[in-house]
Design a protein around this nucleic acid. Structure first.
Length: 564
RNA sequence: CGGGGCGUGGCUCAGCCCGGUUAGAGCGCCUGGUUCGGGACCAGGAGGUCGGAGGUUCAAAUCCUCUCGCCCCGACCA
């Protein structure tokens, strides 16, 4: 492709509304343009990458027996009402105004609709059906370019099996396929166990990429591979022991002392001897939660302990329940359920609020003074704490979810009456799984992981072109003629080449080439041509060397095979 | 949905607080010429209802009200 005829509007300056590297670079490299918040147009160069990712996905899905479909994005609302998901999705689901249609945010219902009409016998299974298609979700806040959009491309697949054991196989196949896909794309990723959320189901795994632009927070152990969303992550934090002697309880006047830090400074004590109080409302009942020092309450864990939803008490409720405002609440004199984090188990000589504004209490012995206390793991895990599975340390960081695999079970087959007859002629619901990959996220994550100050650094798998051919001075006849020859020869040898034949200054072309980031650059200029040589540059390493013109194609082919 | 910020040629921004010539700059674009190994130079030129609507005023990019859009933080997130 000749750059002079190719629509690649590169930008020298950073567009003002982009902040994350992948977004900035996709705009600057002329891959995408925004149409509206969370809605992006892919330009030719960007779409070429999309097609490459899709092709890898297709190959790996086909390899596990997947069959590609193409389902409508426009769906009758009544199918979605069969599973109750019109309500479940709420405002996220786009509704068509002049007919009872919705824009599909995912396709469990539609796949199940087709399955129930044709998959009637145990002999018809297993099936793996997939598609790569545009999804629509009315995200309240799209962000980070294509990472969270209102319209996006997703590979979604669905497995139909006769038993849970068979589902395990389909799930395993997807797990392996996903790893191959992400490996082939050159992504550094890891898999975490996750709660299946509103999708329903019994088991799920998320494929994540570490990134500052991520919206999930995960705890990860480099050493043993333990990885979990912080919502469910556990750790081995440092546990402070009970002092050998317990002091008796005493009240301290602490005017204007609210936070743990203020308390520590005021009394000149360590954070570890403080029991921070939080009041939650669970099933209409006030529960006091005690955490050590500045440890934060993990509400997901708390909900599991208390059963059902929890919410923090409002300030006026606090006053009514405890007699004090936030900052002066504590376990002594609190009438109600008390749950403390494991880090406080059986501890003594603790400081906490007095349930009286501007007063704290010291010398608290949880064994002696708070007899009805219950203990549970309630902390949000933090970086540097011990991995629960090995003796190394955890790292906590934000991550982007690339893909998600679920064991759905019978949620959809039962509500939509997708039944089959087993060997004994008994009617049973189909056992389903669903599996998704965000196509644009694969691209954005790759760029997040593979860029430098000058631009994108593609690998040969995803690069829109393998070689970027730069003509230094196209007005020089020999340069122009040589470039044309090389360009043709590359193409005849199956080397996908982008040829910068524009009449622009060398620096301009070099910078564009670095921005676009093709793995290999071939520079043809008058100077080196005098010795029948051209310069070859590896984008990733910035390595440059001269190659004899006559050996160029052979050399580049070797380079592609071995070095990039 | 709460908080903050922004909206001025294609892009990045200045001007706004304190209203007053013809609304500026850099980049990009067009024409001609020179140049050609890391975002070249000279000369000439095109391009703006200052997001939109209403109001105040002799006078509004500038002040006020409403509205739309975009970004960031939070809430939410299959």
């Amino acid at each position: 492709m000749r750059l002079s005829k190719y629509f690649v509007p590169t930008l020298k300056e950073v567009p003002s509304d982009a902040t994350v590297p992948s977004h900035i670079l996709m705009l600057r490299a002329g891959m995408v343009r925004m149409l509206s918040a969370g809605i992006y147009s892919f330009l030719p160069l960007g779409y070429k990458v999309v097609k490459k990712v899709c092709e890898i996905i297709r190959e790996e899905m086909d390899a596990i027996g997947g069959q590609e479909f193409h389902l409508p994005a426009l769906n009758p609302k009544e199918i979605w009402e069969e599973t109750g998901r019109v309500e479940a999705f709420g405002d996220i689901l786009f509704h068509i105004k002049n007919r009872d249609y919705v824009l599909a945010p995912t396709h469990e219902e539609i796949m199940t609709f087709h399955a129930r009409n044709v998959v009637k016998s145990y002999k018809d299974m297993p099936q793996i059906w997939y598609q790569i298609q545009t999804k629509f979700r009315n995200e309240p806040r799209p962000r980070s370019g294509v990472i969270r959009g209102r319209q996006f491309l997703m590979k979604d697949s669905y497995s139909f099996d006769i038993s849970w054991e068979a589902l395990d196989k389909s799930y395993e196949l997807h797990d392996k396929a996903y790893r191959k896909i992400f490996d082939r794309c050159g992504l550094k990723y890891f898999a975490v166990g996750a709660s299946s959320g509103a999708m329903g189901g019994t088991g799920s795994e998320e494929f994540m990429v570490k990134s500052a632009a991520g919206e999930d927070t995960v705890a990860y152990c480099e050493s043993c591979g333990y990885a979990a969303n912080v919502e469910v992550a556990t750790s081995k934090p440092f546990m402070r022991k009970r002092d050998s002697e317990s002091k008796s309880v005493y009240e301290i006047h602490t005017p204007n002392v609210k936070s743990i830090d203020e308390l520590c400074a005021f009394l000149n004590i360590e954070e570890e001897v403080c029991a921070k109080s939080r009041v939650y409302i669970s099933n209409g009942e006030a529960v006091l939660i005690l955490m050590q020092g500045n440890d934060e309450v993990n509400e997901t864990k708390l909900e599991k302990v208390l059963g059902g939803n929890v919410r923090p008490a409002h300030p006026d409720e606090l006053k009514e329940i405890t007699g004090a405002d936030a900052g002066s609440i504590g376990p002594i004199g609190f009438n109600g359920k008390i749950v403390a984090d494991l880090r406080l188990k059986d501890r003594n000589n603790l400081f906490s609020g007095a349930n009286k504004n501007d007063y704290h209490i010291g010398g608290i012995d949880l064994m002696r003074d708070v007899p009805k206390i219950q203990y549970a793991d309630l902390r949000i895990v933090q970086s540097g704490e011990g991995c629960p599975n090995c003796d190394k340390l955890l790292e906590v960081f934000p991550a982007i979810e690339l893909g998600h695999i679920f064991k759905l079970g019978t949620k959809y087959s039962e509500s939509m009456k997708a039944f089959f007859l087993d060997e004994s002629g008994k009617e049973k619901p189909i056992i389903m799984g669903s599996y998704g990959i965000g196509v644009e996220r694969v691209i954005a994550c790759f760029i997040e992981q593979n860029h430098d100050t000058k631009g994108i650094v593609w690998n040969k798998t995803l690069a829109p072109f393998t070689v970027h051919l730069i003509s230094i001075n196209p007005k020089n006849e020999k340069v122009a003629r040589t470039c044309e020859t090389v360009y043709n020869e590359f193409q005849q040898n199956g080397i996908d080449v982008l040829y910068d034949d524009r009449d622009a200054s060398p620096g301009f072309k070099f910078n564009d080439a670095d921005l676009l980031g093709m793995p290999v650059q071939v520079v043809i200029g008058e100077k080196k041509l005098k010795e029948e040589k051209v310069e070859v540059k590896i984008r990733k390493t910035d390595e440059r060397f001269d190659v004899n013109l006559r050996e160029l194609t052979e050399n580049i082919r070797n380079l592609i095979e071995t070095k990039i």
